[in-house]
């Protein structure tokens, strides 16, 4: 089995694709929400919960390697926000998904570092909140039916993926990387399909858990009042993104925050021009010349370093030999 960890998932944005402004805004939002999750969880924390969340995070990370072939070399696999919510409840699920997404970025370069805040927002916050809102809503609706839990699980998983992808597309559009009128329909359509895979896997997992340990699926029961906020938050995020996306698609230019960022860069540049005398900048004002100069300098430095290290290694090897 080739390791699917190394095939980047379509929702893990790499560095460079979001503007700095968008990256920072979503870092701030994510840090606040994850901070609330940490506080809520540690207040209600049983001493058993740390190993539970840690091991389950590992299981979700590893579970994302499980895949099934769809057609023509494509395969479906699990992202896991919905199943985490169903097994743990919303706040611990935020922490578990945060751990998964952070480790993917830090250790496997699946998703960038500066954009980690945005990726966390999509997968650990939007994904979890929306899954929670949809699951609790449907489980109340279908509580008489035996199939209610599977339908609710499927719908929660599908919507978590779909809504998270809209959020991802909006971030790309806000950054001016991908025009909204293309990014939103494309991301939405792809993830409407990927979401079906996520939904079926989640329902399959629930079927197994239902048969083996029904007691674990206790989310449908009356829940602590503190989670009402998550329910409202999840519903609101879902509604907003669903309403906002078509709007953004039809007004793609209105979204480009990148314009503001460029404005900032231009004013910074103007300020600097006043500080630095003209002649100092003369050399780098010709782009082609500057690029060639930088290329030559870069090659010289890299070769110099390589040469220096090789010499140093030879010297230490010699010393070790002569000491023997």
């Amino acid at each position: 089995m080739s390791s699917p960890i190394f095939s980047p998932l379509p929702m893990h944005i790499p560095d460079g694709f979001l503007s700095v402004l968008v990256s920072i805004v979503f870092w701030v939002i994510s840090v606040i929400v994850i901070g609330i999750a940490l506080r809520k969880t540690s207040r209600e924390l049983g001493e058993r919960d740390v190993p539970l969340m840690g091991v389950l995070a590992a299981a979700i990370f590893a579970g994302q390697m499980l895949n099934f072939s769809v057609t023509g070399g494509t395969s479906g696999h699990l992202l896991g926000a919905a199943i985490a919510v169903i097994l743990l409840g919303p706040w611990p699920a935020v922490l578990v998904m945060t751990s998964v997404v952070s480790v993917q970025a830090l250790l496997f370069q699946d998703g960038g570092i500066l954009v980690l805040g945005a990726n966390l927002f999509n997968m650990a916050i939007v994904g979890v909140f929306v899954a929670y809102a949809v699951y609790t809503l449907l489980i109340q609706l279908f509580k008489e039916q035996s199939w209610g839990v599977f339908v609710a699980g499927f719908a929660a998983a599908w919507s978590s993926i779909f809504i998270a992808s809209l959020s991802c597309a909006l971030q790309l559009a806000l950054s001016g990387t991908s025009p909204a009128n293309l990014a939103i329909p494309a991301m939405g359509a792809i993830h409407a399909l990927i979401g079906i895979g996520e939904g079926l896997i989640t329902a399959g997992a629930l079927a197994f858990l239902f048969a083996a340990r029904k007691d674990l699926l206790k989310l449908g029961e009356p829940r602590p009042a503190g989670n009402k906020g998550v329910f409202l938050g999840g519903s609101l995020i879902a509604l907003m993104l669903v309403v906002l996306s078509p709007l953004a698609s039809s007004h793609p230019d209105g979204l480009e925050w990148v314009a503001q960022e460029n404005g900032f860069i231009l004013s910074a540049k103007a300020a600097l021009y006043n500080l630095i005398p003209d002649y100092a900048l003369h050399g780098i004002s010709d782009p082609a010349l500057a690029t060639i100069a930088a290329g030559v300098l870069g090659v010289v430095i890299v070769f110099g370093v390589a040469y220096g290290i090789a010499r140093a290694e030879k010297r230490t090897a010699k010393q070790e030999n002569s000491q023997r």
Binding site: E47, R48, P51, L52, G54, V55, L56, A58, A59, A62, G63, L66, N67, F68, S69, V70, T71, G76, H77, L78, I83, L87, G197, L200, I201, T202, A203, G204, A205, L206, A207, F208, L209, A212, R213, L216
Partner: peptide, 28 residues
Amino acid sequence: SVSWRAGVTGGMAGSLFLRSLERSDRVY
């Protein structure tokens, strides 16, 4: 069928999570 394959994969995931929950008890 694709949905059957997806369901089987779901079963694997469910089994994995259950084994992991039990592992977390042992870890604790």
